[in-house]
Every structure is written in C-alpha cells, then in structure tokens.
Design a protein around this nucleic acid. Structure first.
Lengths: 192, 192
DNA sequence: TGCAGAATGTGATGTACATCACCTAAGTCC
DNA sequence: GGACTTAGGTGATGTACATCACATTCTGCA
C-alpha cells in the first residue's frame, strides 16, 4: 500500500482537494515505521502528533491504577489515532498507543493540522467530518456498553472486525470489552 | 438571556466571525419554545435539525426494547443536542430528545449547517471544534464507564453538574449512570 | 533445544448489581 | 378533596461478573 495514495483516497472521499492542495497537505506528514510491541505514545509523554495507520494494527489504551488496562480503540489501516485529549489540551498523555504488529503510520503534528485547516477550507471540512465519525462511533459504543451484556458486545466487536479474532490475543479483546480475560474465556467456551 | 447574544458569545469563543457573517449565520436559526415534558425528537422521526439550548434543560435518551431508558446527555444552556447519527446519515431517529423543564432552543437544519460551513470557513472551524469537544467528552465518559464503579460515576456527574441534583428526578440520574433507580437510591442513602 | 514468560482454561468464592415486590409521600387532574 | 399518577425508599433473592488460585499450553529466543 502506497502511503500517499492511501491517504489521498481516504481524504478525497470527503473533501475536494486539488492535486496541488493534496500535495501541500501531504508534505506535512511524516512516514514512520514501528515494530510489533513498540510504543508510539506512552503515559506522561508530551503529545504533539496524531497518526494515520497505513499498515498494521495499533491499540490506544488507558491503564488504571497501574493495574487494569482498557482499550479505547484498535486502530487498523486508514484509522486515525492519538491521545486527542492531550493533543488538543496540551496536557501530558493519559492514553497510550502501541503496536500490535509491525506498523507503518503517517504522522501529523497538531500545529500543522491547525495550520492546514486554516489555510485550506476543504481540509478543515475533512477534519470536521472525520471527528464527526469518531464522535458517532464513540456514542454508539457508549450506548452498547449501557445496553448490551458482554456476550452481545463481543459478537458486535467480531462482526465489526472479523480479523481481530486471529490478530490479537484474547486478553486484549477482553480489555476492549471491559471484562476480565477469565469471563471472556468462559463466554465463548460455554457456547460449545 | 438574549438568544442571539448567547449564541454569538458561544461561537466567538472559538471562531472569528465578523458581525455581518454572524448575522448571516444567525439568520438560519429559528427560536422555538417548549413546555416541560414536551418532545423535540421522538424515536422514528425524520431528523432534520440540531438544537442549541438557550434556557431550560433537555435530555437525549435511548429506549431499549421499549423498556429501559438510557440518557446520553443532559443538555443545559449553550449545549447542542440532536440525534446526530440520524441527522448525518439521514436515517430515522433512534435517540429521542425531550424537555425536563420549559425550554428555549435555537434550531438549525442540517442542510443550513452544511451550507454555512461551505460558505464561511470560520463557521466550519467552529463546528469542527464543537464536534471535537463532544468527541472528547464522549470518550471520557466511556472510560469512566469502564473504569469507575457506580458511586464514583455518580459523584463525577454531580461534580460536573451540581444543579442536576435538584433539577431532575433521581431515576433520570440513574438512567444517565446506567444503573437501576433502586441501586442509586441505596447508594447515596448508605453513606448516611 | 530447552527454558522463561506469555497466553489461555477452569474451579471456588465473593460482590455489585438487577429484579421483583411492596410501601409511603408528594404532585396533578377532574 | 378524592383518585390516580409519579417519585422514591427498602427488603429478599438471583445472577453476571470479578478475583484468586492453579494448571496447561504456546512462543520467542539465547
């Protein structure tokens, strides 16, 4: 997958950018490669960038009391991720991001995003739309949390990302669902 | 509270609009008054508008299996609300909105918002920022759901909206926290 | 190739919550 | 002002989950 073409196809779905505008926008991204297990953002870091996944899979997670981990997002290709709270509010990271597999990402600094948004109206349009999708997904997940039991949420997750079942260890799926690994294990072994 | 000045102050915090631009933007809003208990969006409705609260308090909620209600948001003055999923995807409402008190709102149609966003760059900037705040709030609430027990979430809610305790019946607070009214009742009566 | 650590399964036990059932007090409508 | 509804409290019981403890693979790597 060519990083530039991947990003271009992704953005042009929503925004009308000329080739020249896109090239300009793209010039602010930096391609980075990470190994499986490598950290991209660690708790306490200064957060300056957000990341667009080209290949591989990342997880964005929160660790409570140095004990329990909750996964906010599995970031697959064409997904964006960061600790957005820290990024926008210029605070230290409370959410960490690392790699579940070798991964390539395009990274964009907060300052550059804001600069581009102010320079190119259609870029601002794109980022509004993108945040919007994130907001709706987050709200949907919140409702699912309140409304569904663990089993239903587990099936919902696998329906949305069938690859996850083989890609990531089960205890991480449990951490996404917000249950203990033991409970998840019993869950899908119960139904034969 | 003057509706126009309220909205103006709210928007100018984030966006640089000339008086003329703001007047133009404002000309697309329509002031509406509702009585306590009145519905603004009901499940199954076509959803064309979003709402900016001037006075009073609304709730946005979801009803599961015609039985249980979950509250997504208490909308206080200067908050925006709607069924954004239905609004953006042009589907029927699954989320309802009604009034916890007499209320005044400014309503804006989806088409007008998109029109204004394409005409005025700074308006698009404002709406990107607004969605962003919503996204961060939603993500924070999701984390709180996974991480904290009911008591902690109850205290968090009251810390954020001290007015709520007297403004809304307790079973609605339970519906926001995602627990039964009995559990909530026992919770704050336990600690003397 | 063999060993340490990670991932997973499974039993026993405790607990926070839902659910049901019933009670009282405070609006609200004719 | 009586009747009906809505809010709220409280006991008894059931259940989905966490937690702890331990056994069993699997996997990477020195």
């Amino acid at each position: 997958m060519d990083p530039k073409e991947t990003l271009k196809a992704h953005i042009l779905k929503t925004a009308n950018l000329t080739d020249k505008e896109f090239d300009y926008l793209f010039s602010h991204f930096k391609l980075q490669s990470f190994k499986k297990g490598q950290a991209i953002i660690s708790e306490g870091d200064k957060v300056d960038h957000e990341y667009f996944v080209i290949s591989g899979c990342l997880k964005a997670f929160f660790i409570n009391d140095e004990i329990k981990m909750y996964i906010l997002q599995f970031a697959m290709p064409t997904w964006w991720t960061s600790d957005y709270g820290a990024l926008y509010n210029h605070t230290r990271a409370t959410i960490s991001v690392d790699c579940l597999s070798d991964a390539e990402v395009l990274c964009l600094s907060n300052d550059d995003r804001e600069k581009i948004c102010s320079e190119i109206h259609q870029a601002e349009h794109f980022f509004r739309w993108r945040t919007n999708r994130g907001y709706l997904a987050s709200q949907k997940r919140l409702l699912s949390f309140m409304n569904n039991d663990t089993k239903a949420r587990y099936e919902e997750l696998l329906a949305m990302y069938p690859q996850l079942y083989n890609l990531v260890p089960k205890h991480l799926i449990a951490a996404y669902l917000g249950v203990s690994r033991e409970t998840l294990s019993r869950l899908y072994n119960a139904q034969k």
